[in-house]
Design a protein around this nucleic acid. Sequence first.
DNA 1: AGAGATACCTGGGAGC
DNA 2: TGCTCCCAGGTATCTC
Length: 274
Amino acid sequence: MPELPEVHTVSAALKPLLLDRTFVKIAVFREKLRYPLAPLLNPELLNQPVTDVRRRGRYIVIELANCHALVVHLGMTGVFRQAEPGEARRKHEHVIFHLDDGNELRFECTRRFSSIICCTLDAPGAEPECLAMLGVEPLDGAFTAAYLYGVLQRRKCPVKVALMDNAIVVGIGNIYAAETFFMAKINPTRLACDITRKECSALVRAAKKVLSAAIEAGGTTFSDYRQLDGSEGKFECELLVYGRKGQPCTRCGAPVRTVVQGGRTTFYCPKCQL
DNA sequence: AGAGATACCTGGGAGC
DNA sequence: TGCTCCCAGGTATCTC
């Protein structure tokens, strides 16, 4: 399940592979993932050097010299894989990018929640228009207690739902939200507008710490996520509350409880998260 | 307008 | 062993 640390890891691994390379052919084997894949057949995407590979939220932006860009969302199960030319295509491989150095980059996605969008940028390095709705980056200086307090004040939903809202802050999914609230000792079921300035400060600090540690570990492998070379993330063994329903809290020993919020299971300790 | 519910999709695991 | 059912996840879109 790729959240920000996983996407960060994949984006960083793609960069040296793609920078200054061109696509000589893009082969598409399925009509659509989340969105139609036909735009990948646009000849404007071919024979243009890749000038940048960067991450924005949970999206990977692959920019070309002619200001065309591919915006990739890994969804739940999207994986890039370096493959030997001519290697048999796997069951869920939907797109093969043929590079000018003879290598192949293959995109595999079992549950097909992923998307690959083609767009044009206003200028080199510009933000794609399709990402304009995204909120601040959690690891940026702009994600501060004052900012979070300001936006939470106006929200009546559970605070965990707000922290997972990409219009507020990007890239915090279910796993890292659970870990963030645990570290900050805040009950995720409380209303966003009831969270104090001081608690916002604790949430911001915890989110940055959890995400940084996860990036350091190469992400969390829960079921499907793999790094480019097929290796697993190492953060799973560091999870303190996610996936531990009924087990003793790692801090106070009370049983970890779950509740469904926004259709997602939230793990928390009812005793030490207040 | 804001909040909640649902569809999308597949594989793995639980239960019978 | 083999079947059915449920669950996981992010985002867009629908309904209230």
